[in-house]
Each structure stands twice: as structure tokens, then as C-alpha cells.
Design a protein around this nucleic acid. Sequence first.
RNA 1: GGUCCGGUAGUUCAGCUGGUUAGAACGCCGGCCUGUCACGCCGGAGGCCGCGGGUUCGAGUCCCGUCCGGACCGCCA
Length: 569
Amino acid sequence: MKGTSYRTHGCGDLRPDHIGCEVKVAGWVRRVRDMGQFVFLDLRDRSGIVQLYAPKSSPMYEVLRTLGREWVIQAEGTVRRRESPNPNLPTGEIEIEVETLTLLNRSEVPPFLIEDETDGLEELRLRYRYLDLRRPIMQRRLELRAQFLEVVRRYLRENGFLEVETPMLIRSTPEGARDFLVPSRLKPGSFYALPQSPQLLKQLLMIAGIDRYFQIARCFRDEDYRGDRQAEFTQLDCELSFVSQSEVLSIFTGLVQAVFQELIGVEIGEIPTLTYAEAMSRYGSDKPDLRYGLAWEEVSEWASQTEVPFWKGRRVFQLHLAQAKASRKLQEKWQEVAKSHGIPSLSIAQKEGEKISTSLQKFFTAQSLPPEAEGLWLWAAGENLPHAGLGALRSAVIQDLGLKPERPWALAWIIDFPLFEQDEQGKLAPAHHPFVHPHPEDLEYLEQAPLKVRGLCYDLVINGYEIMSGSLRCHAPELQMRIFRLLGFSEEEAQDKFGFLLEALGRGAPPHGGCAFGIDRWIMLLAGGSSLRDVIAFPKTASGSDLMLNAPAPLDPEQKAEILRWISS
RNA sequence: GGUCCGGUAGUUCAGCUGGUUAGAACGCCGGCCUGUCACGCCGGAGGCCGCGGGUUCGAGUCCCGUCCGGACCGCCA
């Protein structure tokens, strides 16, 4: 740390090399320990903690012992070797014998411990976020986030990307999440929307010839929040022209490798690719947690040759754990899980040597299974097996048996997502967003069998979290219009909502595609946390309020009246 | 929008089927202590039991409403 008029060193920077030096430090009082004949004081700043010392014979003794926690002080003194070192502290071999002390500011007694292991609950920590962020562990998380941005910027710049900012006040588009709206004063009755993502703007940048773009973009979605979902969140938003899907994946594999390597020293190697169809049938999820090898296997053929009557003519999926044992209670719980996810039949068997215990007793002996196979089996059967149910069962089994991950990090590209899905009313809806380029092999039956059409899109899944999502986009206006028509937009509606895009596509749009990383979530994983709020400096609660600023808040009456005038005209 | 859990000292919590003066630990304040670093020891202060209503002789405890926080479902292209 560079010195200023307030300090010559950071508290945590002092080492035995400094013994004998006259130093000046400034920071917050972490704790005072008055021993009678002398006093110790732990002083904290961002660089760490150093112990101040004053013997009773010094005039500083009386000064130090009366200081309160979190008071801001400046101390001047001589670095000396400790009589009893503390090996748990980087500065544990030295202390500063204080000669001059300046009180820079007092502090109220803090409502919770300003320590890595705090006693404050999250609600309190959010209310006094500036105190929460004073905790070393929180500062390390902010540091990790800053390093992340640094690595990402460097990698992308080295690969020819241009960082471009796009506006926050844009217009609302009909699909997707609910928009946050901003009333316009100069055009009463009209509204801006805050971007859910810079999707269309970055496509326009490609048409502008920017070629390779990125942005650390703040995005806003007015939906309900969760531990891993905030009203505003940060995306690493990227778009490239003149690239194939595999080229996009290869460029961003490099980025992901660089981040893991430089931030946490982990070599992730190549990232395996899984199709959507494989992911769904093996793991029951399009974002499987692949730290666990456990996978469903279709055994319909084998099942039809057994005596089990309700397996005949049905599809049967099997989950086998060679080492595992499940109590009756757990088995009942899994039956509930299966039932609540619409799985028609779940059978469970436990085999040890020649002994087998199963609800299939009547139709089934130990000989029905290969002799060397042991452990726990689950069989889900039905004409129609909802994949989500298989996924929920797999998660439940992993959690309830307390399975240990086979590896700390499991990454995968998931590709070949369907382009469309059906909503509740049976209407066609984009599975991803309406600008995804259909898979060229499936283009011919776009109109005939739209649900079978795959998109040129890809997700990156890390430990069961969707960290990045992207696609190649439609660059031909005719193709984009075909998609809009399938989604039920008339020519006029499409022109009204997306006219600017269709027009731009008709003015020399290059083939292009890109992606967006949810970086809050990714940094959360890298920091080893399970809450987004721990890696965002000033996060909001699950109901979207900021407990420190007390936002959202009612308006002044005059302000409110003015807004209402704009809105209703 | 729905379901569930919680709200008691500065903090984290306990408080049984309703029953005298609502507790503990940490923190805070005062005193003592020659090497602490979660210092130790002695003493003390500290409570609209989230808010409003109801039931009851009597409510922290039961009921209704409301606000706040959390988890989950819906939602989040």
C-alpha cells in the first residue's frame, strides 16, 4: 500500500523486517485488551490487522484503554518484536509501541461483530451494509470480484473484443420478464424500460460492424427474487460476427479456463458437451450438477422381460448406486417426490449378496439382477416420464444420502436446445428468446413441426448452475419474420415491436451470435458461497427492498402528483 | 399471486398444556489483572415480547388482521 499523510503502511503490511521502524498507521479499532500493566489494541484496515501496544508507564496507556470498538484512529510508533507471537496472524510476530495517537472519529457500538464469523443475521447485515463490508471476508469477496473483472477484460481485449456501453433507458419489448418502467416527462404517457439485457442493442452493434463486443452490463427484471436472483444483476454480455457455434464455444472455453486458473488456480481442461436431449434423459435437467456421476439409464427392454406386470409396455428408467443404502423413511420420501412430479410408478430395491428387499418381491428375486451387482436401485416407469421428475429424484437421492461430489468442479456445455416450447395455452413460445437461429438441419420443418426444431444455442452449466447462455441469431430478416409469425405476431405487430430490428437486419446484417454470463452467480461459486448477496456490495432482499437505503420508498406528494400526471396523459 | 417458517435485551436465542417479578450467552458500562490476541475474574445497567384488534379473571404464549425477514411453488425469453 502506498503511504499518505495519514499513514506510512497498511496495518496488515508490517513484518519483522520493519522492526525498529517508526511507522504511522490508521484504521478501525477491532478490540482493546486492557491487561492492567499494559494494553493491547487490534487495529484493522483493508490490508489486515496489527497489534498496538502501550505499557502502563506510557501516557498512551490511558488513551488506548478508553477507545471503543470501530473508532477510527491514527497511531504513530515503533515496530517491535512481540514477546509472545501469534502464529495465526500475518503480522503476529510484531506490534507497534504507540507514541502518538490521534482520534479521527468515534463510532457507536456496532450492532454485530465486525469479524469473519459474525453474530449478525443477514437482515441486520443488510441494514448496516457498510459495517458488514468492513468484515475482512466481505472485502476478500469484493477483491475476488474486482480480479474477475480484470481477468475477463484482459482476455476479451486480447481476443479483439471492444467494450461498448449501451443505454439503461430503452424501450419495453413484449416477451420475457416484466420490465421496470420509467415514465417520460417530455413525452407524457410514454415510458422507458430498463433493459432486461442488452440483447437487441448488441445485435445492432454487430450490424454496425463492431465485430466483437462485450460489456459488463447491469440488467433489470421485475420478477420475484430468490437467494440466487436479484432485481438487478450483472451480466458479462458478449456478441461476435462471422463465427460458428463451435468457434464461439472455443473462445469462451478459453475465457472460462483463464478465470478458473487465475482466480482460484484450478485447471478445468476441456469442457465436455452434452445435448439437451442427453441431459434431460440422463439427469432430468438441462442444468445437471455433474459433480455427481449418478445418471438415469433407460432399461425398458430388460424391464419388459421381467415378471413385473406394470413395466410391460412402459418406459423404465433405472438409477443404480452400488454403495448406497436407503432407509424405509427415505424410500417413502422419494415415493412422495415421484408422485408430486407426476411419475406414475417408482420401485425401489436394496440388494446385499443373495438378500433383496423390495416392493417388487412378488415378481422379483435377487437373481433378477446381475449377481455381482449390489446396492440400491430406483426404477421409474410410465408411458410418459416427466424429465423434471427424474431430475428431482436424482437431486433428492444425492441430498438425502449425503453423497460426496466426485469432483469439486463440473462444467459442461449443453447444446441443441429446442427452439420453441408450448406455454400453458398450448401456444408456441420461444424456449430461449425469439432471435435464436434455428438449427440448419431442422430449418425445413420449421412450420410443420416447430417443437422438433433445435436452436443454435448453448448453455454453460457449472455445478448445476446455469452460468452462461447464448446462441447464434437470425441474421436474415425473412427468417426472423418467419419466427415472429410462428410466435403469433402479425406483420403489423412485428413491425411495431421489432421494426427497428427487422429494418436493421435488412441493411447488411452479418451472421452473428453471442452469449451472456451471469457473473454474480459465477463469482458466488468461485467464492464458495451459496448466496448472491455475499458477492454484491449492496444487494436487495427477497422482496426487492434495500434495507439500508429503505428503498423502494413512497414519493413526496408533489412528486407523486407530477408522476401521475405524466402517466395518465 | 400461493404455501410454510420466523419476529422476545444492542446481538443470537430459550421461554412447556395461558398463571406471581420474562431468562441465558455474547456485547455494553464500572472495577481488578505483567504478554493478551474469542484474554481472565468481580459487579452493574439494559425489555411497548414487530404493530393493531379479539378471546379470557388473566396473553410473550391462543385467534384474526397487518408489517418485516427467510424458504419453496408460480414467475424469472
